[in-house]
Simulated scan of single mutants.
Amino acid sequence: MVRLTRAQQQARTRASVLAAAADEFTEHGYAAAKVDRIAERADLTRGAVYSNFPGKRALYLAVLLDLVGRDGGAPAEEPPASAADALAAFARTWLDRLPLMDDSAGRLRLRSLDGVLDHGRVLASLARLEALLLATALEKTGPGRRVRLAELVLTLLDGATHRAETAPGSGDPFDVVQACRHLAGIDLADTWAPPHLPFVAPARTCADAWSPPEEPVDEITGAAGAADGLVVVLGAHRLGAAEEAVRSAAPGEQVTIAVVTGDREETGRLVRLRLTDLLTCLRRVFTPEAWRHVRLVLDDDARIAAAIGLADPDDETEAAVRVRDGLVIARAEGRGAGHAAGSARTGATS
Rank of each mutant, 00 (worst) to 15 (best):
A319M: 05
I186H: 13
D172R: 12
A105N: 03
A164S: 13
G106K: 14
W210C: 00
L157F: 06
E244S: 02
R272K: 13
L132H: 11
A332W: 02
L123Q: 06
G69T: 08
T13P: 00
L126N: 00
G73L: 03
R37F: 05
P54A: 02
T161V: 09
A330P: 00
G185M: 07
V231K: 09
S51M: 08
R335C: 09
D158E: 05
L279W: 07
T205M: 09
P194V: 03
W210R: 02
Q10W: 11
L133T: 12
V297Y: 05
S248L: 06
A319F: 05
L197R: 13
G169W: 01
G144T: 10
E219P: 09
T346V: 15
A84D: 03
V217C: 14
P168Y: 05
D71H: 15
F53T: 04
G185P: 11
I220R: 10
P212V: 01
G106S: 13
V297F: 01
P54F: 07
A307L: 01
A241W: 12
H339W: 15
G73P: 06
W94R: 11
H196C: 05
A164I: 01
A150H: 02
W192T: 03
V147Y: 11
G159T: 08
V68Q: 10
A193W: 09
R204H: 14
R14W: 04
Y50G: 03
G336V: 07
A86Q: 03
A62Q: 00
D102V: 04
L64H: 13
S170F: 11
S16A: 15
R335E: 15
G309T: 02
L273P: 00
A344G: 13
A203F: 01
E78Y: 03
D85H: 02
E253P: 04
L273V: 11
L98P: 05
K34E: 15
E333L: 05
N52I: 02
E265A: 15
A236T: 07
R37I: 11
V260I: 05
T261C: 13
S248D: 07
E316V: 11
S125K: 14
V200G: 00
A124M: 12
L110P: 05
R107S: 10
G73M: 00
R3S: 07
V233Q: 01
D114V: 04
A249N: 07
A167M: 08
D263R: 03
E214Q: 13
G347C: 03
V255M: 06
G309H: 12
E215H: 11
A223I: 03
T346H: 13
E139C: 05
G69Q: 12
G235R: 10
I220F: 12
V285H: 04
G120Q: 09
A105R: 09
V176H: 12
L154S: 00
T280L: 06
D66R: 04
V116H: 14
A249V: 09
A290C: 02
T276F: 10
T256S: 14
L108G: 11
T45A: 01
M101W: 12
V35E: 09
G144M: 03
A167D: 14
Q8S: 09
T317C: 04
V147A: 06
P313D: 09
G338Q: 02
D208C: 00
G72K: 08
A330Q: 04
C180A: 14
L67D: 14
